[in-house]
Every structure is written in C-alpha cells, then in structure tokens.
Amino acid sequence: MSIDVAQRDQTPPSGPEPTTKGRHRVLSPPVTGQELVLIGVIAVLWAILAFTTPAFFTPSSIQPLVASVAPIALIGIGMTVVIITGGIDVSVGAAIAVCSVITAKLVLVQAGQSLPVALIISVIVGGLLGLLNGVLIAYGRVHAIIITFGTANIFLWIALKIFNSTTVNNIPDTLAPLGNGAPGRTFGVPNSFLITVVLAAIAWYYLRHTAGGRHFFAIGGDQLAAQLAGVKVRQRILAAYLLTGLLVGLASTFVVAQGSNLGQNVGNGKELAVIAAVVIGGTSITGGRGSVLGTVLGALLVQTVASGVTQLGWRSELSDLFVGVAIIIAVGADLLRERARRKR
C-alpha cells in the first residue's frame, strides 16, 4: 500500500467522520460551497452570453449545448466514483472509440440492428473494457494511472482495427431518439441529457445515502482502514471501473447518434475533458471526497465556455485556455477552503 503514503498526509477526507451530533453533521451538506460557486458562475456566464449574443437563449442554441454536456457528464459519473476511491481512468477516450465504432460500424451499418440491440451491445462492450481495467487495478494492485495508460493504447488499437483506416459513413438514424434532432427530444429537452440527469440523481443518492456508496469514500480516505472496517475494497474498486465502462458504453451511443459519420478521432482527448469536469466539480483527485452533482455542473461549465467562445466569434481553440483557467480557479478555491477549514 505504499501508493497511499504520499496521499495520506494531504487533505483529510471530509466524508464520514465519527461524531455523535447526528446525521446532518456526518454528511457534507447536499449542495457544497463548490457547487454553489459553480451554479453562480454558470448563471453569470449564461447571463453575459444572453446579454451579448441574443441568439444564445434560444432553444436552437441551448439544446445542442446540453446535448454535448450529456456524454461528458455521464462518463463523469463513473469517473467521479473512480476518483473518489483514489484512482483515475485515462482510458475512457479510447474506450469511447471502441464502443462507438462497434456500435456504428458493426451493429448499425453492417448488421442493421435496432436501437435496443445497439444500446445493449454498446453497454456490454463498454462494461467489458471497464472490467478489464478493474480486474487489473483491483487484483494486480498497480497504480491506476499506469494501467489505464496501457489499456488506453490497447483499446485504441482495437478501435483502429475495426475502423480499418476509413471513417464510418451513412450510419442509419436508428439512434435518432438519443441524437440532436427533433426525435431526440422530450418537451424540447434532449433525451440524452434527461437520461444523464436521471442517472446522476440515482448515483448522487446512492453515493450519499447508502452504506455501499459510503464505502467508496472510505476506500479513498484510507484504503487500509476501510479494509479493516470490513469494506470489500477490491470488489468496490472493481465495481467503480466497471461502472465507468458501462457508462462509457451508454455515452458512446449518444456520440454515434449525433451524426451520420464517425471519424477515427472520436473520443480523442475526451478522457481529459471528463477529468476536467470532475475536478472542476470539486472532487478531490487524492480521493475520499467528491460529488456527482459537482461533476454535472463542471461538465456544464466546460461546455458553456466552449459554446460561449464560439458564439462570441472567438477562435474555438481559445476555449481550452478558459478550461485550464477554470480548473485552476475551481481547484484553487477548494484548496483555500480546505486550508481555512484546517486552521479552524
């Protein structure tokens, strides 16, 4: 367990601490300071954008925005759990490539299957990839970042083999109910975003209010202590990566549904975008602390910035600069609060 030595002397987790003052003292508040700040920042950004570009507050602008949030936020749910346990998964970008090319090329174009079949196959493939990561990390007892760097290369190889050096064209619109167009909306809201919100809400409740959910925090806080307290550490860690894989599979169907073509660069850099959303949302990269709500807000912030930059007519690459600054500010604010909390 030498891996944890460096982490243990950093921020103590603000998760479950033994106290007798009742339930409200045990859990962090439902909406933490970080999340309030994020809500505020997003509100201010939306207000500025609405003020400067009248086209911003129209359905045709908001709908693609929230639809683009969906895959990042959805994978972010799994990544949040992984990071809470003190791990990380940098293979999700390559895993997206595998799931989406299998779904688009093999299942939809070549076999012409229906939506439920495509959905199930994509989720199963994603689950298998996640399972591989989980087994290697939980039972090989190797640092997650190294294993997932390795599996990212292997996944990318699988995806490129299936792509066979060409883009996938003429994808049938079987997945339209998950896409950007009119059939993909319920009461004007993209279905992909609705699914993400529902799953995020379930994950939020599970992580906060069930014993199983708290176990993930316990592992991230102190793996050894969690083990001594009876937490099945390896199974939980395996489950975290498996969950991420399953969600990657689901998110890949959103990605495929967004157009009739699929390029070989699908998923490129998505792992960093997901990690950015998670850390902007206030999840501690050293484990033991974090929330799914923050991750969804973080993804929303990142996509708002990206959308805003293009709508203001700036170079779209400039949005990366703001994402970098947002990470520094969000995590920096968290560090300052943590420092203040410890001084008290």
């Binding site: 960093l272 850390v279 990366d320 600069l321 970098g324 990470i327 520094i328 560090l335």
Partner: peptide, 27 residues
Amino acid sequence: YIGFPALIATLATYYAYKSLAVVINNQ
C-alpha cells in the same frame, strides 16, 4: 507552493498552453 495536485495543475496548464500555441499564430 500553492499545493495543487500535480495531475490537476499540469492538466490545466496543458489546456492553457495548448490553446495559446494554436492562437498565437492563428493556427
């Protein structure tokens, strides 16, 4: 000095530097 986890700090500067490199000469 500020205490950022290295992964976070360099992820953020990765985004920032990458973006500046593209913008500095209009791609």
